[in-house]
Every structure is written in structure tokens, then in C-alpha cells.
Design a protein around this nucleic acid. Structure first.
Ligand SMILES: [Mn+2]
Ligand SMILES: [Mn+2]
Ligand SMILES: [Mn+2]
Ligand SMILES: [Mn+2]
Lengths: 220, 220
DNA sequence: AATAATTTTTAGATTAATCTAAATTTTTTT
DNA sequence: AAAAAAATTTAGATTAATCTAAAAATTATT
């Protein structure tokens, strides 16, 4: 039997919340993320357990089964490939594509996904720097660091974002920070913990702690 | 309020069944086309009438309102644009795209449709020769004729199909008949009403009456 | 260990889209 | 114009996904 949009969304969210260690996810956390009530979550968990997609024991939280993991990763693969399509082929901004991809990710055909992947040249990362699972379902999260963990004087490369909100992405656009930008931390300002950074050996500006916390970077 | 997939499908089917004269569509015809029971159709018609998308009086059949027509045509526009994308960009065959487009046609963003249209170069026809409505909702059905109405000795150009079934389209592929092919009727065979036709001034073959009835052509 | 607070589940409704069976209306045939 | 046939609608259920309110289980605090 096929999984509904709703079921796919639950699986994707369970995947996200359980992190790479595959920790148990609580009913309330799911209610929060799905914008529903805990009672509704409980009903859905019963159904997903019935279908063999999650491990669920009452009051114990949930984890994905192998089967559930496979479905979740396939949805993520589709989401990220469609985001690449929207940015690379249709010319959308990285701040505009998430909601559309949220719909496209549920279009079923495997054949479609594989052809889309080929058309896009088998991209490894989506427009936000998130890794795209391969056709076999392998998803390897690169271990980037958060900009707040970088020392003064270090130069790093911007590789991704933790917050995908359009407002955050637009803020980065205005600051001239994009995937691949070289960021050098010049100074941490005592007053508000903001950082003075230089972008691409070029222009210098302040970025707030809030921003630094959401930037993923790599040492070079 | 937004229309559901189901509502959009009903509107699209009412549009198709009422033809260019906008004739009344019967409950049973809709039940047939939607693969549901008449009772279910009645329920849906009440709802669509409620939303102002159809004109409906009990026992009298339905027609689309202006608003309903607009929604239907937009769904058709999206369906046909996605079909072009699947064939032209992803390399699918014309026999493979209908079912996928049936899903993609319900993805909501107007912004997406307009960018897709531009990316495809504002195509006027889909891979089956069906006209694509423009952004303003203008849909002009070219008046092609059916191959059965063509006289012996005439040369016509193949412009579209009435049957979109994969098996029919594959049959045309095997016969070497594609959009744009020149077809000359050489002879109508008394025995089974099949036609002897020459394709592209090139190869000659029999095509059954069943096939001729489903080919749309244009005099040159 | 008892009590309080928090989390989770159950019970009982609701809405959308569907169904079957029965009733009603319209159309066709005598 | 009756009677018969066909088409359509209504009545009453069902399933998926949701809700609120109440009950039960778990966790934290005295
Ligand atoms: Mn996204
Ligand atoms: Mn992304
Ligand atoms: Mn189609
Ligand atoms: Mn088509």
C-alpha cells in the first residue's frame, strides 16, 4: 500500500528530530513540528507502527524502522532534488523554494526522480548546502561546524545553514553571504556577542550571534 | 479557500465532458469518468455549487461557472506544461507522461507555473498535440479533423491524438507516426475498413479504423 | 515514598470523500 | 396517460486525519 502525504511528512519529521544517532522522538515534539495536537500524533503513530514504519511502544517515544527510514530518506531526496531544480533551472532564489519543494516531494514516480537527478547532473547538495541522498538511500551528513565555534583570525568557507527561513536567507543575501563564501572572523564584540567578519577577502560587516549560530562552515 | 485535488479533478473532467459548447454534464457521466458512484458525485456537486464553481440544479446536470472554468483551465495548463517538461527536458516518452502530470497538475504555486512556462520557451502545444492555455486562461482548440474524414489521395499532417492511452501511443511509435508526420491516404480496404497510408513520403502500412478514429490531422 | 507536574493516551466528535441501499424524479416506452 | 426503465438524489455508514476534554502513565519534586 502507498503512504499518504501526511504519513510521509511524519516520517520525514521523525527522521529530522531523531538526528543521526536515531534517538527516540517524543509525541509532544512531533505535535509541535506537525502543528497538530498530541492526541492526533498518537493516532498517527499507531497507524505508522501498524504499517511497520516505526518502532512504537506506548509512552516510550518512536524511532524509524529500516522501512520507515527508507521512505523518509526518499522523501528528503526528492525534496532536495526539486529545490535544486527550482534554483538552477527555474531561477528561483534559495529563499523561495522550500514551500514548493514541500509539495513536490510527495510526487510518487521513482522513474521521475531518477531522470530529474540525471537532468540536474546528480547534484550532491541542495541550494541550502544540505546533502542529497543517493538513489540507494545513502545519506552522509558532512560534519561542518557552526560559525560560533570558529576562532578569531580563522578563515572558513560557508557550507550551509541551520535555519531555512526565507527571512534568514534574505538577510544573508543582503549581507553578501552565499554558499562558498569565505568568512574570516576578525573580532567578537563584547557588547552583544556580534562578530565582525570579512566576506571573500572583500567587505567587512557585523553579524549577530543569532546569525552566527545558524551558519555552517568548514575549515580550509 | 483552496480547492482540493479531488475538486480540481472534478472541474477538469466537467470541462472535458462539456466540450467547447459548454453542454450540461450528467451525474452518471461524471461517475464514470471519476471512477466513483453516482451518489458520491451528487455529494461533490453540491459542494462545488456551494463554492460557486458550477451551476447545478438537482436532476439538471452541471456546467462550470466562470470561476470554475478558470480553475479547470489552470489545471489543464499545468498538466500540459508539466508534460512538455517531462518529454522535452527529462526525456520521457509521450506514452509515459500523463500519469505523472496527473499528479504535478495539482501543485499550487502560480509563480512556479509561470517560471516553468518560461523555462520551456512558452510552448503552445503539449506532447500529444493538445493546446496549452496561456497565462490569462485563454484556451483555443485548433479545429483539426479526424483521419477518418480525409479522402483517398489527400496528404495531411498529424497534429494530435484523441486517445491518450500508452498502448495507443506506443502503437503509433511502432508505426513511425509522430506529431508532424505527413500521412497520405492511399486506399481504404473494403474488408475491415483499414487504411493503407504512406507516412512521410516514405514507408507504407495499414492502420486500423480504430487508429484512424483517434488521429487528429490538418490539411496542408 | 508520596505528591505534584508533565506527558501521553483514550474517548468521543467532526469534516472530507467515499460507499450501498432505498427513495425520488425524469425519461422512455407502451 | 400509464407503466416501466433509467437517472439521480437522499439516508445512513465508513475511513483518514484531525480536534477537545478527560483519564492514565511517567517523571520530577518535595
Ligand atoms: Mn527545504
Ligand atoms: Mn534545502
Ligand atoms: Mn495528459
Ligand atoms: Mn497531453
Amino acid at each position: 500500500m502507498q503512504n499518504s502525504f501526511t504519513e510521509e511528512n511524519y516520517l520525514k519529521i521523525i527522521h529530522a528530530l531523531s538526528g543521526r544517532e536515531g534517538l527516540e522522538v517524543s509525541t509532544n515534539a512531533l505535535a509541535e513540528s506537525t502543528s497538530t495536537r498530541a492526541a492526533s500524533v498518537t493516532d498517527m503513530l499507531r497507524k505508522l507502527a501498524e504499517k511497520g514504519l516505526i518502532h512504537y511502544k506506548k509512552y516510550q517515544g518512536v524511532r524509524l524502522t529500516e522501512a520507515g527510514e527508507k521512505v523518509a530518506i526518499n522523501v528528503i531526496r526528492k525534496h532536495r532534488l526539486w529545490e535544486v531544480f527550482l534554483v538552477e533551472k527555474l531561477g528561483f532564489g534559495w529563499d523561495e523554494v522550500h514551500d514548493i519543494a514541500e509539495e513536490l516531494e510527495h510526487i510518487p514516480s521513482d522513474h521521475l526522480v531518477e531522470r530529474l537527478d540525471a537532468f540536474l547532473g546528480h547534484p550532491r547538495f541542495d541550494p541550502h548546502g544540505d546533502p542529497i541522498p543517493d538513489a540507494k538511500g545513502n545519506l552522509t551528513e558532512p560534519d561542518y561546524l557552526v560559525l560560533t565555534d570558529v576562532q578569531i583570525g580563522e578563515k572558513v568557507r560557508m557550507m550551509g545553514v541551520l535555519d531555512h527561513a526565507p527571512s534568514f536567507l534574505q538577510h544573508l543575501d543582503r549581507a553578501g553571504i552565499t554558499l562558498g563564501s569565505v568568512i574570516e572572523i576578525r573580532e567578537i564584540n563584547e557588547y552583544d556577542k556580534s562578530a565582525s567578519v570579512q566576506i571573500n577577502e572583500n567587505h567587512t560587516l557585523f553579524i549577530s550571534l543569532e546569525v552566527s549560530k545558524n551558519l555552517l562552515v568548514q575549515r580550509r
